[in-house]
Design a protein around this nucleic acid. Structure first.
Lengths: 228, 228
DNA sequence: CGATCGTAAATTGTTAGCAATTAACGATTG
DNA sequence: CAATCGTTAATTGCTAACAATTTACGATCG
């Protein structure tokens, strides 16, 4: 018998598709490609030293995540995120995060709250001014815990599909208005406290309040009105 | 100048991946494959007279739709839908359909209501006993109108990703308890009337009531408890 | 006789090359 | 000179062959 979990946490070497996906996702989120830019399979393939197959698979996944638009026989074009997209992501996120919180609040135990508190501690302790990427990372880490705790594969999947867009928006905002310092910690703490009541209705309300606050700040960004 | 819409409705010949996807999706929904069955790329490819590429793409899409499970270096296995899956699909669907209805009720115009009424008319007029596949088709057609009217690409996409699972559950239910005849028409009519009030809160409540009713009936099915 | 290790078969992951489609350019015509 | 039609270049869609990985079987050893 093998000691439990000795060689197991070896997530079976990621496939090339996954590697390529991660790289491209990161590059797009970081704004390395211009919106509207044509991503050519062959170009990316040679640049990444792989063949077109894995690149192709990564691109279809990126389409599902809303980062690129796939046009038949034309290829992949980086999406230009408009204020309509901000609204869509916000409303969809609210819908699923309400559900996630409802379920999570009665399922979270000691370890989950400990993980949350660790993140909260980092938010409080972060040296001002907080770097945008750190702020975004902590913010998402906090919400990831809720989604993980809600124990709902399909909700988890939807969250994954909008997560990097949320990341993009948060990043843009934090670059333009670096006030995460002030609102980040208290607002998340409030949400944590609501969750610890283990009352679905309360958790739901807290999520709505939290997200609508974030959305209000997000709307201050000036984004393109229409895709060119 | 070309007369508006003469050659346009030519949706640019579907790709092989799409054809394969449609076929496999249909076969799985209709129960042509046993749950847990191993779908081998090469087998499907030769059977469908295409190469493994398109089959592969179709399988990854089917995974996103929850019809198969993809295991690294093992391949695609037909999902066995458990009562946990029924619950997940139901709760996720409720979350997004609330949102869809909220938006749809203030966006629906004459044509949308006309389309709904046409479906309702067919529900009422259907000769008893209604064939399960007809009942499912009409049911989904009705809800498709809501999703289309809500004007929300991302919600639409999530709906697409669970739609055929909903279809599967509805089908199974209608086969076992053919009472769509009695509840189908009045319940959908009630929802339609709520939507026509153009009041988001009312629409939301109506959706919740409608779906929870459907879920209660769905729970009567005895489904496997655990994936084998 | 049971357990373990090595080997082989089957299947997926990846690559490279060919075919089909699109879009852009330039010649041609009214 | 503007508009249209053929031609060509570029890019994706698809195919077929190769490499890597996993599982299953059987020989070997205790």
């Amino acid at each position: 018998m093998i000691p439990d979990g000795l060689l197991l946490p070896q997530p079976s070497q990621p496939s090339l598709s996954e590697v390529v996906l991660k790289i491209l996702r990161e590059m797009i989120s970081a704004g390395q490609f211009k919106p509207g830019q044509h991503l050519k399979e062959a170009e990316l393939a040679t640049a990444l030293k792989v063949s077109r197959g894995p690149v192709r698979e990564a691109l279809t996944q990126l389409e599902a995540e809303g980062h690129v638009e796939l046009r038949r026989h034309r290829g992949a074009f980086v999406s230009t995120l408009t204020r309509v997209d901000v609204e869509e992501v916000h409303t969809l996120r609210t819908a699923i995060e309400r559900l996630a919180a409802e379920r999570a609040c009665t399922r979270m135990g000691e370890p989950e709250f400990a993980a949350m508190d660790a993140v909260l501690e980092k938010m409080k302790a972060a040296t001002r001014p907080v770097k945008p990427e750190d702020a975004v990372r902590l913010d998402l880490q906090f919400h990831d815990i809720i989604y993980a705790a809600c124990d709902h594969q399909r909700v988890q999947r939807v969250w994954t599909s909008i997560r990097s867009q949320v990341s993009f928006f948060l990043h843009t905002r934090n670059v333009n208005f670096p006030d995460f310092t002030d609102v980040g910690y208290p607002e998340h703490l409030e949400l944590r406290n609501a969750l610890s009541q283990a009352d679905p209705a309360a958790a739901c309300a807290a999520v709505e309040k939290h997200l609508s606050g974030a959305y209000e700040r997000l709307k201050k960004l000036d984004l393109p009105d229409k895709p060119v």
